[in-house]
Design a protein around this nucleic acid. Structure first.
Lengths: 183, 183
DNA sequence: GTCTATACACCGATAGAC
DNA sequence: GTCTATCGGTGTATAGAC
């Protein structure tokens, strides 16, 4: 329903209609409307964690390849569903704060990224923060300025190359991929 | 009022109260609540355009220094006022779409950045798009993950250095600022 | 226990008197 | 141009049937 009418346009009466109930009956299952958003939040991040784990299973051994796969995986996941992304990352619902329980798979996903970074010798918080901002910025720009298109999607690989070059992360068998070279 | 109670928590009744009117009287001045948001949107971007122009007046001649100033100016402006940033850049208000008139100062601000890029030989759309995503990502990460702090603010200079290094933009009097050197 | 029926307070918006 | 009165719709809550 969020994908059809928009995340913030959910009404309890229509939600109830779609599951064959009256609106007040929802309170037998959820404490409030925010509790429904909270369940959706946890569900979305659990799904993201699963996708990330699946991608991690076939991650290349080199840092550049690993970050390429990680960034592309998260980018595609975030771009493929705007309402879900609004719920997961943006604070679109006024006053909504995820519960600690629903937040757990979100921190677990970030922990996955932290492990991947540590695997290639990047243990600093700043490097991970910069990476998070870079990939998140690409996602937001894609959604905000070219919804449904690929104008920023085409920049993901280049952005990761820029990041890897900046940290001089390559091992010897993978030469630096400087400047405007694309795969 | 948006800074006090939040952007989405504006109610026509309290807005009217604060200007000494009754709620329906607002409709003599604005067609709808969205029209009020639209006026605020135009006002915010007009202010951003003015700040950008002021910064541009004292921009250094070299590309690296210019991008440092431009990024810092926009970042600080966007971070200093969350409700304003939500209105300008995020789509926090459900269903709100800025009018062409209010959108004009936004495109003018982007045009300023495009001119600055062209001044240093960067005429490609991709370079500007990547820059927009990078700075926007830093702003969003700062707001979302460390509101009121400076965890991503401290990364702005480094991010710009990474970007400038990637494009090999330096003229000879300014040596590349590789790796983790901070000013 | 789970649902239906009903009510409350609030919202944006409109109609019409002055 | 501002007001009063009011409308339909919303999230939320409670009472009570089955």
């Amino acid at each position: 329903m969020a994908r059809e009418v928009g995340l913030a346009q959910l009404t309890l009466r229509e939600v109830a209609d779609r599951v064959g109930m009256r609106a007040p009956s929802l309170y037998s299952h959820f404490d409030s409307k925010h509790a429904i958003y909270d369940a959706m939040f946890g569900q979305a991040w659990t799904e993201c964690l699963a996708v990330s784990n699946a991608a991690l299973a076939q991650v290349p051994p080199d840092a550049r390849g690993a970050l390429h796969l990680a960034a592309r995986t998260f980018f595609d996941f975030a771009v493929s569903d705007l309402p879900r992304h609004q719920l997961m990352n943006l604070r679109t619902i006024p006053g909504f704060q995820p519960s600690a329980e629903s937040y757990a798979p979100a921190v677990a996903t970030l922990e996955l990224a932290r492990d991947l970074f540590g695997r290639h010798g990047m243990t600093g918080q700043e490097e991970l923060d910069l990476y998070v901002a870079l990939v998140g910025g690409l996602v937001d720009a894609q959604h905000a300025n070219d919804p449904g298109g690929d104008r920023w999607s085409r920049l993901v690989d280049r952005a990761v190359d820029m990041f890897v070059d900046h940290l001089d992360l390559d091992e010897e068998q993978h030469p630096p991929n400087r400047k405007k070279e694309r795969s």
